[in-house]
Write a protein that binds this DNA or RNA. Structure first.
Lengths: 215, 215
DNA sequence: TGTACATCAGTGAACGCGCGTTCACTGATGTAC
DNA sequence: TGTACATCAGTGAACGCGCGTTCACTGATGTAC
């Protein structure tokens, strides 16, 4: 009889994976500061020295978590892009995906956008992709006439700032200042912000066209 | 002869103030995690137990820093509001002030929007004010016809999310993804984002008016 | 102006704690023949 | 199929460190009379 689930063999089998999972849980429950290699090992039920066979330092564990985070975001965005074809709807859906991604797992955002004190490492693969997809969605909107002309980079930055700011304000508290406020209002505010962007860009695109034809 | 500047008297004279100043410097140089009461005391040149006469816990020091941060932001906003009268220009200037406030002293943003693990205390006085001023600026824009109709709270949230997101993306790194990127581009991108909002809202307000008169 | 005394704001030693990291070790697993 | 051996992935003890916080203390300052 091979190692069953109940059997605790000397070797864990998939410790690396288990450590990552425990780490997410820890960040989620008690924040980034509470993420220590020792606590993660404890959570998994393994000696505090064991993780060192998989992550040479605490920072390496964080980097691995960050990779997972960006990979998950990237996957979520790809799903959205595959499902929709209307340019405006796609852009809105990308924004919605970003916001929901953060609401559903704030610990990911904490890890992905943590403020580093160590010198920056190579950025995770998914990170560029995220921006590239957004940029492409903006360009498609421009072509379809539902986004204003101009530097797509700048428009993409506006869009990204908008959803990122919404998410951060939500996660870090001050959104409570907007009465009446309760968690059921989340979807409402999210849609308000997304609609605001979409409507505004469409109005501008229209104004640009009529200015052109009117000339 | 009373205590001169060089004389180190037994009593510091203004330790509380000196601790706060050293704390800002510490956060600025080495991040929130490096902020410890012991290190702050060391920086000021005082025993590690001395701060306890002014701040009962580390968290109390952070709360005091946060108060200072919001007070400074509030003051900066008031200055902007006093200087300008054109509604659209005022709103843009508020956004610019917010962004520059963060660029000039990122440590403030770190402290003001830190993620708490402790139960929330009473919010600092300046915090509501900040949102109230923004809200009022949005309403003024609506009256002047340079912002769309609708719930001013929601529009204010859009505006706040936009500048907050820009700031956070800037401080936390991923803005580097937008080539060509260097620090001299900051003003350019800031203006692009602010102009984007202003132009969009004006276009929407115009479209609303012509839809009304055209009916 | 001087004296007695309370209060304030420091000192310095000590506590217990959890952390990251290292190390020699050992049980389990995989491979060559 | 069995055996020898290398490698892998754990264990458990130990290190040094800096932290928050407490405590009895003492020098400096302010106040009443």
């Amino acid at each position: 009889m091979p190692a069953s689930k109940t059997k605790r063999s000397y070797h864990h089998g998939d410790l690396r994976h288990a450590l990552l999972e425990a780490a997410w849980q820890l960040v989620s429950e008690r924040g980034l500061d509470a993420l220590t290699l020792r606590e993660v090992a404890r959570k998994v039920g393994v000696t505090h020295a064991a993780p060192y066979h998989h992550f040479p330092t605490r920072e390496a564990l964080l980097d691995a978590l960050e990779d997972e985070g960006f990979a998950a975001l990237r996957a979520q965005m790809l799903r959205v892009l595959a499902d929709l074809s209307d340019p405006g709807a796609r852009l809105s859906a990308l924004g919605r995906a970003y916001i929901d991604f953060a609401r559903d797992a704030p610990e990911r955002v904490q890890v992905m956008f943590r403020r580093r004190t160590a010198p920056a490492r190579e950025p995770p693969a998914g990170e560029d992709d995220v921006f590239v997809y957004l940029l492409e969605a903006v360009r498609t909107c421009q072509v379809a006439g539902v986004a204003p002309a101009g530097d797509a980079h700048e428009l993409a930055l506006t869009a990204w700032s908008l959803v990122h700011g919404f998410v951060k304000l939500w996660l870090e508290g001050p959104l409570e200042l907007m009465p009446p406020y309760d968690s059921t209002r989340f979807e409402l505010l999210r849609e308000a912000v997304l609609t605001d962007l979409r409507t505004s860009w469409r109005a501008r695109a229209l104004a640009e066209r009529s200015a052109l034809t009117g000339k």
